[in-house]
């Protein structure tokens, strides 16, 4: 559920980035693509994480999913960084 909600948030962010495309062109397109790719990647690996959590609770031992967590954090940092670059550096197309 928590990962699903995060996917939904990323999709909403991608939809908001779409609003930038008429003004910032292809650069805003990369933000949309990055958000969608992250959301799809989370969705595709959802079943694996679910089974991992179930097995962890069942066997009372679980290694945290460090790679997924680091990847999501990195994606959000990159999106925010690119967003700042868009506002400050990319000229608005009329």
């Amino acid at each position: 559920m928590a990962w699903g909600r995060t996917t939904l948030s990323l999709t909403v962010a991608a939809a908001v980035f779409l609003r930038w495309m008429p003004h910032h062109g292809w650069f805003a397109g990369t933000l949309v693509a990055a958000s969608v790719v992250t959301a799809v990647a989370i969705n595709l690996t959802r079943k694996r994480r679910f089974h991992r959590a179930i097995n962890g609770v069942k066997h009372e031992a679980m290694t945290p999913d460090v790679a997924s967590i680091a990847a999501v954090a990195a994606s959000v940092i990159i999106l925010a960084g690119l967003g700042i670059c868009t506002v400050l550096l990319i000229p608005v197309e009329q």
């Binding site: 928590a2 948030s9 990323l10 908001v16 609003r19 959590a53 945290p64 954090a73 925010a80």
Partner: peptide, 25 residues
């Protein structure tokens, strides 16, 4: 506890995404 920590992390990430969307908006 590990799973609860992961859920809290995701809640913070969603907060971050909401701020991101707010900035763009």
């Amino acid at each position: 506890f590990t799973l609860a920590n992961e859920r809290t992390f995701l809640a913070w990430i969603r907060t971050s995404l909401a701020l991101l969307a707010g900035g763009v908006a």
